[in-house]
Amino acid sequence: MSWYNKRLAKSIWVYHMSASPCNNCDIEILDLLTPKYDVERFGIKLVGSVRHADVILLSGVINQKVAPQVKKIYEQAAKPCFVVGVGTCPASGCCFKDSYNTVKKREDVIPIHLYIPGCPPKPEAMIEGVVKLAGVLNA
């Protein structure tokens, strides 16, 4: 399967899922596509439908209302599909962890394979994160 994994690592299509973020990680994710960072160089492409995705970029602390949708969308994805938690929110809940409306155990909603901490992470950090994921696939 290593041949296939190499193809997968070179053609990562990402789906961007925001689960009650502050929008900042989201614009930084979009920033990745634009001329300064241009992740198309690595074959990373943003797709609109989760069925086409290889990687789901999850941003934001998941709130209770959006949690069932997040779960459903992950289930709809064609496997193999990895989930990358972008920002501090999916990792620790940031300053929203005390709220009445946030999900306390995010692992129950969606399995997150890789965290990119930062509030927001710099685009360079996001590229490094995705490249690390590709490195795991290549190994």
Binding site: Q64, K65, A67, P68, Y100, N101
Partner: peptide
């Protein structure tokens, strides 16, 4: 905000 909310939050700012 809390229409169709799965947990049915009631008056959170008073709790």
């Amino acid at each position: 905000l809390t229409g169709n909310h799965p947990q049915n939050i009631k008056v959170p700012l008073r709790k």
